[in-house]
Amino acid sequence: MALDIESRARFNLKSATILLVETPGVNMDILSQILMGFGAKAMHRCDSAVDARTTIGRTEMDLMVISPFLADECGYELVQWIRREAPDPNKFAPIIMVSPHTEQSKVARARDCGAHFLVAKPLTPAVILERIIWVARSQRPFVSCDTYVGPERRFKFEGPPATGGRRRDDLPETVGEAVEPNMSQDQIDALMAPRKVAI
């Protein structure tokens, strides 16, 4: 759901420590101006992956914004390193990637390296803010296996696959008549809600 930019809802980024990894110059300024506008105070700006690794090693981050195009290393590899080797709790920090070219394979690469989101440039404050709030609220679980470490990638619920069933003995989609009467709300509450017992 798109963020209502006229919303009076409040949020506070003042105490968050944020890492910005972007090419030096105006691209870095754009990111900084947007986050300063949101009220962020503690920002660490790194223009290379080497610099970012050092900073991540000594400072606890609450949010990281990373570009895939860095002078010394690909940003996707940096994210992969963060997810696998960065110290706790930085390896679990929310990561938003900001990318100029967002062709499908690049989007898939961002997802598979362990980023929470990929935002396409040109950046707009509304989109960045929407993603920050979304990442913070969604609290996606983390997955770790041989080939991937990062937030759960399947975060959309789209129902069961429309394959028409995979086995011969799959039950039909149509549901039969109820064989017992529905439970009343009181009966449901009695099962679900904890009650004090008076002795």
């Binding site: 963020l3 930019i5 006229e6 919303s7 809802a9 409040r10 506008g37 949101f38 009220g39 803010l129």
Partner: peptide
Amino acid sequence: GKTVAEAV
């Protein structure tokens, strides 16, 4: 903090 409108 700020409202969304102020921040944007």
